[in-house]
Nucleic acid binder design. Structure first.
Lengths: 350, 350
DNA sequence: TTGTAGGCGTTATCAG
DNA sequence: CTGATAACGCCTACAA
């Protein structure tokens, strides 16, 4: 039922030569007929199409790519794939890439011993690469630039000139968030998850510090994390929540990411603390869980999906040569006020 | 600083020929020296290594693949990438694939017009494919089998013979979950999200029906979903929660997935209903959010990450020829009792 | 130990 | 309109 007349016991993939032979023409004509380039006689075309169908011919991607000199594939590099964050970005990327007719190769440098090597390998398989954060070392990025491999950085800055850079806004939203927290009457701030977790996080930290200083409020207490694993988060969360009796115990714990904040929420529950009455908590990202947590988490929304899509389109411009000058774009973010930051009278927002 | 002596203004990628010429040898020797196959004189080798380094030579993947007859890449097909579920599976897959020295190409058939076409294209780029659920039509799977492309199905069954099949256990866990719900005294069951949402979901439905029948409890009320979008879930959740006054209003809403259950939890909160006192709720999957929701969600844990890893390893066996007979594996699952299913006296589990 | 030459599967150029 | 044929970049018998 698959091959109509005369099963083809051969096992090797059908090549253009077999089609050509069967149709009684040269391979060039087959190529032209099949891809619609150049003109082919009507009768000839039909013979070829028929032969191709009968043989179930599928052009080898390797051959095509080699001849065309392009892969028709995009790469993307993440530090990890855990949590909902990266999935969203990847989704947006995938979607846009598919639209543009390109496949997506994913690398998560996570547990990889030789992350940089993997990135180099990736570069050899694709027409362009998107790199999240600081997953690729500067040398590697420099190499990519040197060999004119289109590159987009999803990070707040680049130490190499050449790649596109896509960032999300930190300072302004952090200030707005801080002001909101001040309006709740909070005065003793703890920042859990930084500084020194990277440029993004430090920008938020700086904005927090600045806004508090401007308001004449004591400086926040920085509490860097030892890691982002579940265990580390748990320990850190318990730690910041300890000693509630002390007079300098924080009113509010501002967290570098939602996942940190969620860990704090969980720990608070275990310790019998009420959020936001005993202590307020905020996150950053607005991952799906933020809406479902108890209490619902006040955070800052990042347009992750959109970011992935933009990255794909940016990269496409670079690859197709539509644009040759690097671009630096900042995506806006905005605070999402829910319940973990303090009590809002009769708030009825979703 | 990049190229030490004599910058190379050429723009085209360095080929093995250039290295050979520079080292004053033939390309075959370069190939042997660089990949460590066959023996090469010590001095010669050094000259070659030097030349390669100076030229910054990186073998073209296309060339290598074409010559070797393999891609060193694996594919994976998901219906979507939204939510935490697929991300976890992908993570496990990625990890294992990287370990095995293979790249991963991802396809999400989601918004794709020509999903099957994309899957075919994918197949041409990789040595083997993993397919989640029913994303690939039977014909396409049959094609893959026909052309001997190693294939692993992440689904409860296959209508085509040949591929490996990796499943997770449904019936037993569904029965255990149901029995637990019965032990809470629940008698009026609603099943939200099925049946007819696919084999997995229907298996759970069947187990629910069977267990209730065996206990002499009225049959559950099936409430299929019109879709998995946020909007559809919201509407459905409100609907099942309406009419709390009616005598046949459900004691417990058993949901096909966590995401459905979480929507119900949200809706209940909006309606001022208390879970589990007014109505109990359960999910399936144990996504990360389940632990953070309010109340924490009783569900069934699926080993998503492990599933991805197993798929990668299974596929590798098929590709490498270590194993030639198809394999059918069922991963076990287990209920995770938290608080949304009913009140547990002094339960202090995490 | 080393080099030559054929092959992998297409595309595209250039004469017929 | 069509058919040889030269790339494309590498690997690997085979010969020297």
């Amino acid at each position: 039922m698959d091959d109509q007349a005369g099963s083809r016991p051969e096992d090797t993939p059908v090549t253009i030569y077999q089609v050509a032979q069967r149709a009684g023409v040269g391979i060039a004509t087959v190529s032209r007929a099949l891809r619609g380039t150049g003109s082919v006689g009507a009768r000839t075309r039909e013979r070829i199409l028929l032969a191709a169908r009968e043989l179930n011919f599928v052009p080898s991607r390797l051959g095509v790519s080699l001849a065309e000199g392009r892969h028709a594939a995009n790469g993307i590099v993440f530090p990890s794939l855990t949590g909902p964050y990266f999935g969203e970005v990847l989704l947006g990327y995938e979607e846009a890439a598919a639209e543009l007719g390109r496949s997506v190769i994913v690398v998560a440098t996570d547990g990889l011993g030789s992350a940089q090597e993997h990135i180099r390998d990736l570069a050899g398989r694709v027409d362009g690469v998107v790199i999240y954060g600081r997953t690729a070392e500067s040398d590697v990025v420099a190499e990519l630039v040197a060999e004119h491999k289109p590159t987009v950085l999803l990070a707040p800055w680049a130490d190499v000139d050449g790649p596109d850079v896509l960032t999300t806004e930190n300072t302004r939203s952090a200030r707005e968030l801080t002001e909101h927290l001040l309006s709740h009457g909070h005065r003793r701030f703890t920042y859990l998850g930084g500084p020194t977790g990277g440029r993004d996080i430090d920008e938020r930290w700086a904005a927090l510090v600045g806004t508090l200083a401007a308001a004449g409020v004591p400086a926040p207490l920085p509490v860097p994390l030892s890691g982002y694993g579940e265990a580390e988060l748990y320990v850190a969360a318990r730690a910041v929540l300890a000693d509630r009796g002390r007079p300098d115990a924080p009113d509010v714990i501002v967290c570098s990411h939602d996942e940190v904040a969620l860990a704090v929420l969980l720990a608070a529950r275990e310790l019998g603390l009420t959020v936001p009455d005993d202590v307020a908590v905020t996150g950053w990202d607005d991952v799906v869980t933020a809406k479902h947590s108890w209490p619902p988490l006040t955070t800052v929304r990042q347009p992750m999906r959109r970011m992935g899509g933009m990255a794909a389109r940016s990269l496409d411009e670079l690859i197709s040569g539509t644009r040759t000058t690097p671009r630096h774009e900042v995506l806006s973010t905005r605070p999402v006020i829910r319940e973990s930051c303090g009590n809002h009278p009769q708030s009825s927002r979703r």
